[in-house]
Nucleic acid binder design. Structure first.
Lengths: 250, 250
DNA sequence: TAGTGGTCTAGACCACAAA
DNA sequence: TTGTGGTCTAGACCACTAA
């Protein structure tokens, strides 16, 4: 019951799912679940061809996708390797606060402030495509980096998608793993807005900063693998301690 | 003398540059220079094959790259089309303030505050890989959206890469076009940091906001097609009027 | 020299949209 | 029915790295 999607390591040729997508899921899982570690060499294209009985073009199509996501990199004449996570990931991929901090060389800690049911306000209901007043699980957490306040996160989860979630321990387990293991929910994508705001008094108190200090404020809607918007989250980062990094093309 | 890279529309098979890169440059230019407009259908893959005498795999490799950049999209059974610019572009591609505003449905305007030579401070010199004290062109501009102050931009260009730039009209012409036409400089990529800060008094005055209002603060280093860091820019966006948007993968 | 990734080809069959 | 993009194959030659 724990896993909705049992780990596959075989390609099913009769499946309606294209071979390259099946192979993509397999390789991607090996990397994101840390079965292949950063710096590890992947099997060569020739070996992957034989192992999964697909053409080289198909293998390369999959590797291209993983390169595009910065999960692997290739070196001509040497091989293909698992990439080292970079802080730029925070603007590319849905990563946990814990992973984000580790990539920045900071020790993460979490303090649960509250976890309870609330009726969905109109604006959030609209974003989550539910009715105003439907039940939401509201989880408020203070995030610490090297034992200093770093961010406040306000999560709103659609309760009906994960009815038993309030019984869980949000400090011992990541919200991400609880959702995956208890509710079979995995995030496929998200859209977000990034703003700068002045800290209201309550947040300033939590973050140990002066009222009106600048905060990097992110609002994000996360979609499940079934393309259902199931979480709305507001993240308030201390402007003096948190920054986002990214690369632009010409 | 105006163009350093004369427009190519032919593929040279004897060139050391791979066919797919040549084709990519041709198609990309057609799109970014607005020769093909948003919504236009591209020639079909079959036609591109014949027109440029390459295989379908090569054509698709190029189209895949353009899809990845959100410059085109494909519809099975219908064709391939030039994509409509989205506000998400601001976090993906180096776009001008003018284009950014148009994508947001806002009318852009610019007010030149100052343009002069300065000696490079140590921190900027380091980012631009030049010596402290070398000459920089400092251009300070106020950006308006629908006639209201939106942002302040502080550009620092390495003077020796573009010696005659101060003779130009920075209001009538975009900095981008001046650099390309007068100096042969085109941006290939950039790296940036995004923060939230409290507005200092001088910026608050320019932006017509209260001191300490939150600003979305971006510092960016832009690299030329020869991979030389030639510009450092600080952008201060009004937090109440400007936001960044993007999508994340799971 | 052996093994790796980089580039390129010709050809096949399929699903889908529009006429 | 025609033309479009989606998926997949087998095979070739090249450039580079490391032994």
């Amino acid at each position: 019951m724990l896993k909705d999607n049992p780990r596959k390591s075989q390609i099913v040729r009769s499946s309606a799912v294209p071979l390259y997508q099946q192979l993509y899921e397999i390789l991607r899982t090996n990397i994101t679940q840390h079965e292949w570690k950063s710096g590890d060499m992947l099997p060569s294209e020739t070996i992957l061809m034989k192992q999964f009985d697909v053409s080289r073009v198909t293998v390369r199509q999959v590797l291209d996708m993983l390169v595009q996501e910065d999960l692997i990199y290739r070196e001509r004449g040497r091989g293909t390797f698992v990439a080292k996570p970079r802080v730029e990931q925070a603007l590319m991929r849905i990563i946990s606060f814990t992973d984000d901090m580790h990539q920045r060389g900071i020790e993460p800690k979490t303090k649960l402030i509250s976890a309870n049911l609330v009726a969905a306000p109109g604006d959030i209901a609209k974003k989550l495509r539910i009715k105003t007043g439907e039940e939401l699980v509201h989880i408020k957490r203070l995030r610490l980096g090297n034992d200093e306040p770093m961010s406040v996160e306000d999560s709103y989860l659609v309760h009906k998608y994960c009815p038993e979630i309030l019984e869980e321990d949000f400090v011992a387990n990541s919200l991400r793993s609880i959702l995956e293991n208890r509710c079979g929910i995995r995030w496929a994508k998200a859209t977000q807005v990034i703003r700068a705001i002045n800290a209201p008094n309550d947040l300033a108190d939590l973050l140990l900063i002066k009222p009106k200090s600048a905060l990097l404020f992110i609002e994000r809607i996360s979609f499940t693998t079934q393309d259902i918007p199931a979480e709305f989250i507001r993240i308030f980062h201390r402007g003096d301690r948190y920054a986002l990094y990214n690369d632009l093309k010409g």
